[in-house]
């Protein structure tokens, strides 16, 4: 039902409105503007907090490799662009930005095929009565908190993988430099990507399932009647229908992975100032670094350290929002009214 159908009363003159209606309209209008206010407050706080470090760093925030709060105790301050910071402070976010993009990109590359395969199997091949239990597991997977994924990654998956899977990978793919060992202790880029992949699969899979349900059944039956195998039906008939939607869903999953904090904080090894040398190396992301360093940043009397983390947060905010809105735009255009996946949990 298009939402306009039931809005008959907009043609009525406001003066005729009953008192109860006016109260309801005005109070609900006030609450409707609150998300606006919250959003504005968050963005404003981030800009105000981050501005000093932004001015101090300039483009170094994006291109610099060294992120350090400097000598917090004693020493003459370093001055840049008219802003003073503790001696030798440098707020270069390049390694963190790369870490954020890399972990989430690898996670996405792993998650997309798995999500597509699982969604296809559930909608096309599995008997209907199994759909309930499977989607319950999807719900559960999406509902598991980030920190619990981190706990699993750091106590179970990481140690196990570094003993068995990673050496195997290094052995067979060792001819590619990035996959060559040493494989480390299980806290690093690949572990973070694996756990992130598990976290974004339900987001991509649930949207894809919705899209697959919208593929007209007659087209599929027609394909089968022509003697196509089911794989050929998927390739020639289903895929063109869902392609763009899958792209949008993937962007949504990516946005989630980009902003993920607690799991990455526990399993990425939280590297600073270095790019990962191979796929098993520790890596740092913006979100995890903010969470890890804010505590220590509070001891910087000039406030520059906190501001630097704010500036990083602003960068993260921009990257995430661009990805998220891109995804929503695509999904909305392709599947108007489809249940948009919920970005965070569930």
């Amino acid at each position: 039902m298009p939402p306009s159908l039931h809005k008959v009363r907009t043609t009525r003159r406001r003066t005729d409105e009953a008192t109860g209606d006016r109260v309801l309209r005005l109070t609900s209008l006030v609450t409707a503007t609150l998300p606006f206010a919250i959003l504005a407050a968050i963005v404003l706080v981030m800009i105000v907090s981050g501005s000093r470090a932004l001015i101090y760093s300039g483009t170094n925030l994006l291109t610099g490799r060294i992120f350090t709060f400097g000598h917090l105790y004693g020493g003459s301050p370093t001055v840049h662009n008219g802003i003073a910071a503790p001696r030798d402070a440098s707020y270069g976010g390049a390694t963190l930005i790369v870490g954020t993009l890399l972990t989430s990109a690898i996670a996405l590359a792993l998650a997309i095929p798995v999500a597509l395969g699982a969604a296809l199997l559930v909608t096309e091949r599995l008997p209907h009565r199994l759909e309930g239990p499977v989607s319950l597991i999807g719900d559960l997977l999406a509902g598991i908190p980030s920190v619990v994924y981190g706990l699993w990654g750091v106590t179970i998956l990481g140690p196990l993988a570094s003993r068995s899977f990673y050496p195997w990978l290094a052995h067979w793919l060792g001819f590619i430099p990035f996959f060559r060992g040493p494989v480390g202790a299980g806290q690093g880029l690949l572990t973070a990507s694996l756990v992130l992949a598990v976290m974004v699969v339900p987001i991509i899979a649930s949207t894809t399932r919705e899209l697959l349900r919208r593929v007209p059944i007659l087209h599929k039956e027609g394909g089968l009647a022509l003697g196509m195998t089911r794989l050929e039906v998927v390739r020639a008939i289903i895929w063109p229908f869902v392609r763009n939607g899958v792209l949008g869903a993937s962007l949504l999953g990516w946005a989630r992975a980009l902003g993920e904090t607690m799991a990455v904080l526990l399993i990425s090894g939280n590297a600073l100032n270095v790019f990962p040398g191979n796929i098993y190396d520790p890596v740092g992301t913006i979100a995890a670094t903010i969470a890890a360093l804010l505590d220590g940043a509070l001891t910087d009397g000039t406030g520059m350290a906190v501001s630097a983390l704010g500036a990083l947060g602003l960068v993260l905010l921009l990257i995430t929002l661009a990805t998220n809105l891109g995804g929503r735009l695509i999904v909305r255009r392709v599947a108007a009214g489809a249940a948009l996946p919920v970005g965070r949990g569930f």
Partner: peptide, 28 residues
């Protein structure tokens, strides 16, 4: 109560808010 345009604006704001990373909310 909202007109189509108003509703889609509010929806947009809501989606942007939902897309903000939780650590950014924590920092703010």
């Amino acid at each position: 109560f909202a007109s189509q345009r108003q509703a889609s604006l509010f929806r947009f704001v809501s989606e942007v808010l939902a897309g903000i990373p939780s650590i950014v909310v924590g920092y703010a």
